[in-house]
Write a protein that binds this DNA or RNA. Structure first.
Lengths: 203, 203
DNA sequence: GTACAGTTTAACCAAATGGTTAACGCAAAG
DNA sequence: CTTTGCGTTAACCATTTGGTTAAACTGTAC
């Protein structure tokens, strides 16, 4: 029985993730989720009381995984630049596995900001990771240049995340420019981001 | 009468834009749009036959405005680098005015890619703008370095567009890092993008 | 004023939606 | 064998949804 529970709950979460990622909280349909999980609609409400509750679980899971990628920042055995390089690999591999993740998170935040503020606060206190403080620290130690940390963090995440967000656009635009685009393992992308970081943080 | 028509139609399009940008095609509600336009719901169907048709109009308008920003590329009186700098100013000013634009376009594309492919083809043939070909041209003339144009275009758009997409995230993260962020006129952002471009395209 | 066109509305409809209920199945416990 | 309790389902419900209809309104041309 226990195994059956887990299976059903997992199947629901899986189907819910797919649906919510694609259509968002309002756009996703409970019937769709039930169908894709291969179960009755009433079971959704048996396991998760309401659409909102189900959504919350999916969203929190996504956000949490996203934040997990930042654990490298706490690895004090590495110099700051190395940690950032590792983070770039992590985050790009992660987004490559869940390409709709950024979209999903951003989309839902734009609909309901309040919810997000609370959850970020929770997760950050939990994991205690701050790239910005890390940069300031590196600057004090003289390991990196004196750029504006906030602008840098923004640029860095832009370079990593946007290609996955906008991949449908790029596919269309590039194919219509008679160019083509292949980047197995996202190595070109990783290299170009690291190149940028090295350039910006060089003393 | 003519003016009244225009007014109503305009009010509807305005309200529809707001609703669709925030909730997407499926999430947006016709009643909401009617309310916000200050009219009866039936009028929506009088002016635009269906929800899809109304959405199409909004989406095409958005996409078209987006593409208009690329007209600088065709200004042969300027060297390639100058055109790109101007484009950066244009696109950032534009996104600053319509911060939900990228989100909206990307969101809907991820739901229905087919539709997008056709519309991009239409608009591009119409305006005939290709940054990638421009870069190749500049490389042949020896004006810019020999970077991979596709990677460069991706990086460039990442740096410009993502900050607006992710601004809710940044606000939350930055405020919880005891940092703060002000960038009137987006001048810091523009400067950092241009800095990146200059670095990448320098021979 | 009357006829006529385009514009606007209230009332309505069928379908879809999130959610509930009561009953059934079925394994484990007594 | 019966009871108990969780997992599951079909049938159902109230509300919301996009969409329609027929009548009312409004300004213009005759």
């Amino acid at each position: 029985m226990q195994s059956k529970d887990k299976n059903t709950e997992q199947k629901i979460l899986e189907a819910a993730k797919t649906a919510f990622m694609k259509y968002g909280l309002y756009g996703a349909r409970m019937q769709d989720i039930a169908d894709n999980a291969g179960i009755n609609k009433a079971l959704l409400h048996y396991y998760f009381r309401s659409k909102e509750k189900l959504f919350d679980q999916v969203f929190e899971g996504a956000l949490s995984k996203y934040f997990e990628q930042m654990l490298v920042f706490s690895d004090t055995s590495l110099p700051v630049l190395e940690r950032i390089f590792k983070y770039i690999d992590n985050i790009i591999d992660f987004l490559s596995e869940y390409p709709q993740m950024s979209m999903f998170i951003i989309k839902e935040i734009s609909v309901d900001q309040e919810m997000f503020y609370e959850k970020v606060k929770m997760l950050k206190e939990d994991k205690g990771i701050h790239l910005i403080s890390l940069l300031k620290e590196g600057q004090e130690k003289g390991e990196i240049s004196n750029i504006d940390p906030v602008v840098f963090v923004m640029n860095l995440h832009s370079l990593c995340a946007y290609p996955f967000l906008a991949s449908p656009i790029f596919k269309a635009i590039i194919s219509s420019s008679a160019s083509h685009w292949e980047d197995p393992g996202n190595n070109k992308l990783k290299a170009s981001v690291k190149d940028f970081v090295a350039f910006r943080l060089a003393k």
